[in-house]
Design a protein around this nucleic acid. Sequence first.
RNA 1: GCCCGCUUGGCUCAGUGGUAGAGCACUCGCUUCACACGCGAGGGGUCAGAAGUUCGAAUCUUCUAGCGGGCACCA
Length: 896
Amino acid sequence: MTDIPKTYDPQQAEQSHYARWEGEGYFAPEINKDPKAPVFSIVIPPPNVTGSLHMGHALQHTMMDVMTRHKRMCGYRTLWLPGMDHAGISTQLVVSRELKKEGLTRHDLGREKFVERVWQWKADSGGQITRQIRREGASVDWSRERFTMDEGLSRAAREVFVRLYEEGAIYRGTRIVNWCPTDQTVLSDLEVEKTPQRGQLYYLQYPVKDNSHRLTVATTRPETMLGDTAVAVNPDDERFRSMVGQVVLLPITGREIPVIADEYVDPEFGTGAVKVTPAHDPNDYDMGVRHNLPRVFVIDQNARMTADAGPEFAGLDRYKAREKVIEKFQELGLLEKVVDYEFAISKCERCKTVIEPLISTQWFMRMDQMRDLALDLMRKERKPRFVPESYERVYTNWLEDLRDWTISRQLWWGHQIPAWYDEAGNVYVAHSEDEARQKSGTDKLTQDPDVLDTWFSAALWPFSTLGWPDETEDLRTYYPTSVLVTARDIIFLWVSRMVMEGLKFVGRTPFHDVFVTGTVLDKHGQRMSKTKNNGIDPLEVFDKYGVDATRLALASIGAADTRWNDKQVESYRNFANKIWNAARFCMMNAEGAESVADPFAGDHANLPLHDRWILSRLNKTAGGVNAALDNYQFHEAVQTLYHFFWDDFCDWYIELTKAIVIAEEVSPERNVARARLIWVLEQSLRLLHPFMPYLTEELWQRLPVKHQELLHPAYAGATTSIMLAAYPQSELQLIDEQGESEIDRLKTLISSVRNIRSEINIKPGDRIPVLIREANTNMRAMFEANQDQIARLTRASQVSIARELDPPKASARAVISGSGEVVIPLEGLIDFAQESARLSREKEKLQTEAAKLAGQLANADFVKRAPAEKVEELRARADEIKQHITALDQMLEALK
RNA sequence: GCCCGCUUGGCUCAGUGGUAGAGCACUCGCUUCACACGCGAGGGGUCAGAAGUUCGAAUCUUCUAGCGGGCACCA
């Protein structure tokens, strides 16, 4: 077995296992043969078919895979369903950009050819994403992979559209919307981002008709004045009371427009008078509706001025028009002033173009009914449960404020709206063109050219992927899903909409829990983004440190934002190597282990201390990890495993058992010790598997154990893999507090000797005698039983244990407990002053603590009000310190 | 403007009412027969500031400051 390399090679382990797992069908829930098995299911938040996976995906996928593998090993019927989103705008943009390189636009190809081209592109890009998901080790069921534009999911989208239309919740209407002049489509409010913008506030004077007064308005968009149809003031504003009802002459155009009074106007801002452009501003639009104002359209869909803007302006870009309007006002002497001003501007989330509010005919979804379903669910059942809890309020507040959703998009890539128009313009909404023909009684129909917002189909994802609208077995079994893992930026766009649609169409919440992960930031605390080009490619990290190490680093992030640092991954890479080498040691000393049928058979009370101890630690670890995972405390699970494996198993258990394990002479004791070592290792690998699938499988397959027997009963008969082994659970009867405290004492002894050796600069190779005084009979027996281990780990020439000692003056000494001390005779080596100083330092520390405790115990209120056990605990500690100090004093005295 | 989160050793972060933790970095010593991606021994923090609740606060409450995020129609 010495053919195992000294360093773990992740690339090697990552090569073959995934294909085998997938090929054997381990990822599919059908692998579970227990008809009564509980169900655990997750649908993946479908990555956009554009772009490759980033750190955020790797983070979420790690969490989901850890949970899925954990539940699978616990015997759950487990489904993690993968898939992708067609990402309407993004994808259309990417493919359009490709076409541009060939000197073409989508219009050159025409709709059909263009969509064909996108499908081609999707095959390629989608393949890249699925390869990346495989590389992550994600145990998704590829046999159930879905894409939002699949026929099944498209059918679900049409079904929802038709039903909502028939109920009147989807309607066609004309109103002011967010228009992106670059992408040439309408956008929902959520796809618009507000960014601070430095600009100017222009004070324009409008002459009042019939007198020489001028009314000054302030605006950030002077070009829209060409479309003004009123000036508004607050009805309570004394300054303008006489103006209301008067008429002003709109400069440049010469149009006459009224002065109106409206509550919306804030007298404090600007001049207190607002120009009103109902056709090009959402607030003015509302005022226009209230006052029945005419709409003058002066900007078109390309953000250029229309003919109605006047001959001098027609065809000008909106910014050119702005300059020209200002010039004109200046010439006319009507430009009062221009001041610098910072305000929020709306931009297209995708292309960052400034949004142009336009009046347009679109499809909308009324949200009130579904919103109430979701709010009711939260109020009555507190579902879904958000982790961390604080997102519950974010979600609820947003829902309470919900407005109608603009669902149509002027794109070609997406689900075309299932609405047809006859020649008279009547609309027929149907599942298919055939149905529309029947409804209309004509076949001269034209389908609405628009497509649905990408989020329309994404909102159906938890049930459309499971076969809805059909009542499928999958839908019955896996819906509602157990948990949704997502980033916080799509709680509104996606999470809330899934809840609403799930409640509306399936009648139940789509997921019980929502785990909102933190964000991976760059090392300066900035969000990673394409524009900043500060993203870290998970694939590069995989290559450098291995997938398993990266997964551990990601799992440690949990719900809080964290700055990425390679050092962290490096330390987990080292951990992986540590596991590799511990296993290597076990396997180098495995001979004879297989002859032991059950390494821990018989009465556990008769086991050697270190064996009882490691079983206790192992069971506490299993308990801690299971509890942590059930509560989404991934970081805690990782820490628990890390310290159990490295500190308990490697640093102490292997070292304590090593002497027997590596004995040259073959003996039953040696074989048993070897079998126990391998047994504990095997259990540890299982505990680690959800986090480190590749390494653990690689090692597990090499272990000389009866693999088939280790599988969870639900997977009996499957070919063997650690991913189907039973996840260790905590067995309370194996927890041994007494044993743990004895090992603690042993560790203190060994550490004390090592400390002395180090402080007195005893060469590592020098063997020294170790004398132990121990008054407690049980402890003395424990030290005696572990004499060989003590000798080995302290590099002692001899270890003597006695009830009483008469240490030579030239000794280094340390207190182990109230009842014991360790003495190292150092004739000729010891510097009395130095030794004295060392002991005094220790005494000082203890005195500080003693003083604190004494103060607390002297406080009558504390003794009276604190729980009795707490008081007792402090008293015991105070006594111990007292004894400790007494022992130190004796030692100091002896040095004089 | 409103809401939320964060502020703990040099760095990145855990902890969340009862004696301050980890990893990395740092210091010293080590080819100790699994591992130098290692082993052993150390040093280092008035837990952002103030007030309050409590026998006791890094932990709960309020306020302040700094940073980050979300929401909002102020032209």
